[in-house]
């Protein structure tokens, strides 16, 4: 992989290339220029301006950024988002892997199970959220179950107000996100597991490795590129979490489940502070970019590529 990357040359015009190729990509490339590049450049400009509904008012320099750093709600939304990242990403990876390993066995009806576990991924999130709001209601099924279980075990328990208390609201968002996205992780892991050569297991078995050792020293290293991909992918997804808290708790109560992207949305469309929203979007971008670069750098330590 690494050798491939270094042999690639930067873009250079070669006379033997057919120019019509560029005409063919022109429509989508023009769209990319206008709707992505231009929009991104505009948002950078807006973040350094005093910009309202009707457009440019004055140049603001770093004022929007300075305001944000002083804004307690921005910090609260950031803290919430960090909470989402450190809960959702590892739990999703672990659960997805466990499900994939389970469904990689020769068991009866395995296709049906795979289908069931993947179904939330293709389900409308709003419909899912409505069901979860009912499930997690104060006197809903989840709390009834927990009360019955703890009652049977004799453990003192008071039913949590999942959606209405600031201690639990983030967890209800985490639960919805896990339900919605773990199926995707599972499918990707399943594909990776099926790519692990059987001979390696046979060899390890011959060497006397037990099931756990085979998993730890054969499976895990061989699927580490997949883990790396999923890790980056889901971390970015968690940084950009919007729909889940929006439909589940609206960010409340007391902003306890508000995510950064939700705050960007509120700043832009509730407060009509396009400048503040753009500044926040750029800060988020810088953080995500830095994290991704860092992970990319760190992958040498734990990601194993077969081609190397």
């Amino acid at each position: 992989m690494a050798s491939h990357a270094s042999s690639r040359r930067p873009f250079r015009w070669r006379p033997d290339q057919q120019w019509e190729g560029y005409l063919f990509i022109l429509p989508s490339f023009a769209g990319f220029l206008i709707f992505i590049v231009l929009a991104v450049a505009m948002s950078l400009g807006i973040s350094f301006s005093d910009w309202g509904l009707t457009g440019f008012k004055s140049f603001a320099g770093l004022r929007n950024y300075q305001q944000l750093l002083r804004d307690p709600l921005f910090w609260q939304a950031s803290t919430n988002t960090v909470f989402y990242i450190v809960t959702i990403v590892p739990m999703q990876l672990a659960l997805g892997l466990v499900m994939a390993v389970g469904l990689n066995q020769a068991i009866r009806g395995v296709t049906v199970y795979r289908l069931i576990y993947f179904m939330p991924v293709v389900t409308t999130i709003v419909a899912g959220a409505i069901v979860f709001r009912l499930l997690l209601a104060t006197n809903g099924p989840v709390n009834s179950l927990l009360t019955t279980l703890t009652g049977a075990l004799g453990v003192p328990f008071s039913a949590p107000n999942w959606l209405g208390s600031s201690q639990f609201s983030k967890w209800s968002v985490v639960i919805l996100t896990l339900w919605k996205n773990t199926g995707f992780t599972m499918v990707v892991y399943l594909a990776a597991l099926q790519g692990v050569p059987k001979e390696l297991y046979d060899a390890a078995h011959t060497d006397g490795a037990n099931a756990w050792q085979r998993f730890r020293h054969v499976t895990l290293p061989l699927i580490s590129p997949t883990t790396f991909f999923l890790f980056i992918f889901q971390m970015i997804g968690a940084f950009q979490l919007f729909t889940e808290p929006f439909v589940m708790t609206r960010g409340g109560p007391a902003n306890s489940s508000l995510s950064v992207v939700q705050y960007i949305y509120l700043a832009a469309f509730r407060d009509i502070r396009m400048d503040k929203a753009a500044a926040m979007a750029w800060m988020l971008f810088i953080v995500i970019f830095a994290f991704t670069l860092f992970q990319n750098f760190m992958q040498k330590r734990w990601v194993y590529y077969e081609s190397e």
Binding site: G164, S166, P253, A254, N255, L266, R270, D271
Partner: peptide
Amino acid sequence: PEWDELSGSIIEPGLQTVWAGE
């Protein structure tokens, strides 16, 4: 003009802790 932001980001969320009994 900034009322909606003040109310939506600070006042109402702050009072939600009271309505929740926290």
